Computed example of a mutant assay.
Amino acid sequence: MAFLQGPSPKQEEMIRQELNEMPGDVERGIRDLRSMCAANPYLPNPESLDSRLLLLFLRGCRMDFERARKKLETFCYSRSRYRDLFEHRSLIEPPLNDVCKFLDIVPLPKVTDEGLRVTIFRMRPNYPESSSDIAATARAILLISDARMHDETLIAGDAFVWECTHVRASLATRVAMAAGAVRRSIHLAQAAYPQRMRRIHVVGAPALIASSINLMRSCVNEKIRKRYYLHSKTEELLDHFPSRVLPVEWGGDEESIDVLAKKWRRRVEELREYLRNLNELCDVTPGDVYHDDIYGAVGCFRKLDID
């Protein structure tokens, strides 16, 4: 059962203004995206695309129809171009079930006063060394992102919180060895997903993973690099987020991270058919997508093609 909550009526009005959403824009935008799909034989049948999915792309691009077309096309093409990133669609079956022993991936139910959706990435204490597979972790994060798209409401943007208190020195080596997978996943998230990244908070990161943080920062544009915040302890997050949003172990009023992580694992299982259908959006990527700038997709793929 979906448990993401939306904004209040007052917040809705504020968010629509921030997203430049005017009366009639939603209907026109959805028609525009469906027309693009109808005109391109490599894209899905426009009637097979849920209006809620299309609306996410419109709002994630602040109702800029051209940007929304580019993102949607890249999102569809990526399912064919990078099948390995999307081949596993469960968090309770191998191999991604092991990732859950290493990292909790938890979009929080309530939005902030600004209308932001906060997602927690918490490295678990005493995680088995074998569970910290970076490539598998990237796949698990994309899987949760896909599931969240099904349930997401009207939001103003995203805030990510990486809690790294329990990280080990060996993780820096693992990240360095999987640098290609890290870059590819981050570039894909920027190029193909309808996110508006507003802030990234890193908590309790020891100096030994400075190189890993620098790698992640190098994969994003200058605007997002300036939105990184470093904290020594989770209590400092209360200066940035209301307590009603944060989990109880961080001084908030929300359910614990463990409880929410279990809910998300169950939710992914409930959405398994939907998640598999997403993988079938685009079976074949046109060969000239790597040579012709079709809605900008080629630029995204050039950045991604680094392994």
Score class of each variant (00 low, 15 high):
R79C: 01
R79Y: 03
S80L: 01
Y82E: 03
R83E: 01
R83N: 02
R83G: 00
R83L: 01
D84N: 14
D84M: 08
L91S: 06
I92P: 01
E93R: 15
L96T: 03
N97P: 03
N97W: 08
D98C: 06
C100P: 00
K101Q: 15
D104I: 09
I105D: 12
P109S: 02
T112P: 12
E114A: 11
R117H: 09
R117W: 02
F121T: 03
R122V: 11
P125N: 12
Y127I: 04
P128C: 04
S130I: 00
D133G: 02
D133N: 15
A135Y: 05
A138H: 01
R139T: 02
A140L: 08
L143W: 03
I144P: 08
S145R: 05
A147P: 09
R148D: 04
D151W: 11
A156K: 03
A159G: 06
V161A: 09
E163G: 10
T165C: 11
H166C: 09
A169W: 13
S170P: 05
T173C: 10
V175Q: 06
V175C: 07
M177G: 08
G180W: 03
V182E: 00
R184Q: 14
H187T: 11
L188G: 09
A189C: 04
A192R: 01
P194V: 08
P194C: 06
Q195C: 12
R198I: 10
R199S: 15
I200T: 15
I209A: 06
S212W: 03
L215W: 08
